[in-house]
Amino acid sequence: MTRDRFDRTRSAGYLANHMARLFAQRLHERIRPLGLAPAQFMTLLELWDEDGLTQRDLVDRLDVEQATMANTLARMERDGLIERRAHEADARAKTIHLTRRARDLRGPAEAAAREVNAMAMEGMEAAERERFVVAIGKAVEGLKVGAQTDR
């Protein structure tokens, strides 16, 4: 009996994981001189869009574990990127706010991310780029829905 061999070159999961690792490596190379790590950059993207989120908000938006977010925020606070303030409505919660340093990093950090995206899609035509991004978005949504139904 012959078994079908797993073909990683045709596996969406394998390729997405490999691509994500390469994206993270290239992004890290470009944002390291800014004093940022990829997890900090992802957190900043959310805070640049909406300053004053709670740790719980960030966990939900970034699909990360509570402990991972707590560690990321602790490093960001240590590095002078964020400050925590008392939540107006919930005495147990803190809101996360950007410092001037973090706001000033937005332009250079986003430019670095655009460079990495351009590098990844260099060999694609505009229509292929659009289809690629739409397809990845659909895959992400499918996995989110699948995770919710597993609970």
Results as ranks from 00 to 15, higher is better:
residue 103 R to P: 07
residue 37 A to C: 13
residue 38 P to T: 06
residue 31 I to T: 03
residue 84 R to T: 02
residue 111 A to L: 09
residue 112 A to H: 08
residue 64 V to I: 12
residue 45 L to P: 01
residue 111 A to V: 02
residue 21 R to G: 12
residue 75 R to H: 08
residue 22 L to C: 03
residue 116 V to G: 00
residue 9 T to E: 14
residue 96 I to H: 05
residue 36 L to P: 07
residue 60 D to P: 06
residue 12 A to Y: 02
residue 38 P to G: 01
residue 137 G to Y: 04
residue 102 A to E: 00
residue 10 R to D: 14
residue 55 Q to R: 00
residue 64 V to S: 00
residue 11 S to W: 14
residue 114 R to C: 03
residue 30 R to G: 06
residue 126 A to L: 06
residue 97 H to I: 06
residue 82 I to F: 03
residue 74 A to S: 07
residue 129 R to N: 05
residue 70 A to T: 10
residue 140 V to C: 00
residue 77 E to W: 11
residue 11 S to P: 09
residue 54 T to I: 01
residue 141 E to P: 04
residue 20 A to H: 08
residue 32 R to T: 13
residue 48 W to M: 06
residue 102 A to G: 01
residue 135 A to T: 10
residue 144 K to L: 14
residue 28 H to M: 10
residue 93 A to R: 02
residue 121 M to D: 05
residue 41 F to C: 13
residue 144 K to R: 12
residue 34 L to E: 05
residue 138 K to N: 15
residue 52 G to P: 00
residue 26 R to M: 01
residue 85 R to G: 09
residue 26 R to T: 07
residue 54 T to R: 08
residue 31 I to N: 06
residue 86 A to N: 14
residue 93 A to G: 01
residue 14 Y to K: 04
residue 54 T to E: 04
residue 145 V to E: 08
residue 40 Q to D: 01
residue 86 A to Q: 15
residue 4 D to E: 14
residue 81 L to Q: 02
residue 17 N to V: 13
residue 147 A to N: 11
residue 127 A to Y: 07
residue 61 R to P: 01
residue 14 Y to V: 00
residue 100 R to M: 12
residue 19 M to K: 11
residue 5 R to N: 14
residue 113 A to G: 07
residue 7 D to I: 10
residue 64 V to F: 02
residue 92 R to S: 10
residue 139 A to W: 15
residue 91 A to I: 13
residue 139 A to Q: 10
residue 112 A to M: 05
residue 113 A to E: 10
residue 78 R to D: 09
residue 97 H to D: 09
residue 71 N to I: 15
residue 68 T to I: 13
residue 23 F to W: 02
residue 31 I to R: 00
residue 38 P to F: 00
residue 148 Q to Y: 12
residue 106 R to N: 02
residue 88 E to C: 03
residue 135 A to V: 07
residue 43 T to Q: 06
residue 66 Q to F: 13
residue 147 A to Q: 12
residue 54 T to N: 09
residue 142 G to A: 09
residue 17 N to C: 15
residue 19 M to T: 14
residue 151 R to H: 13
residue 37 A to M: 15
residue 48 W to I: 06
residue 45 L to K: 12
residue 1 M to R: 15
residue 125 E to F: 12
residue 2 T to K: 12
residue 28 H to I: 03
residue 121 M to G: 13
residue 73 L to Y: 06
residue 122 E to D: 12
residue 142 G to V: 06
residue 22 L to S: 09
residue 39 A to S: 15
residue 21 R to Q: 08
residue 85 R to Q: 14
residue 89 A to F: 14
residue 103 R to Q: 10
residue 76 M to C: 00
residue 60 D to H: 10
residue 5 R to F: 15
residue 135 A to H: 03
residue 72 T to F: 05
residue 47 L to G: 03
residue 33 P to Q: 08
residue 29 E to F: 11
residue 29 E to H: 09
residue 129 R to M: 09
residue 66 Q to N: 15
residue 53 L to H: 01
residue 99 T to A: 05
residue 32 R to P: 09
residue 13 G to V: 11
residue 44 L to T: 04
residue 12 A to C: 09
residue 59 V to P: 04
residue 49 D to R: 04
residue 41 F to I: 11
residue 98 L to W: 02
residue 113 A to V: 07
residue 13 G to C: 11
residue 40 Q to Y: 07
residue 60 D to N: 14
residue 44 L to S: 07
residue 147 A to G: 12
residue 93 A to M: 10
residue 92 R to N: 00
residue 67 A to C: 08
residue 118 A to S: 01
residue 100 R to Y: 11
residue 9 T to G: 11
residue 54 T to S: 04
residue 50 E to G: 11
residue 131 R to C: 04
residue 146 G to Q: 05
residue 122 E to A: 12
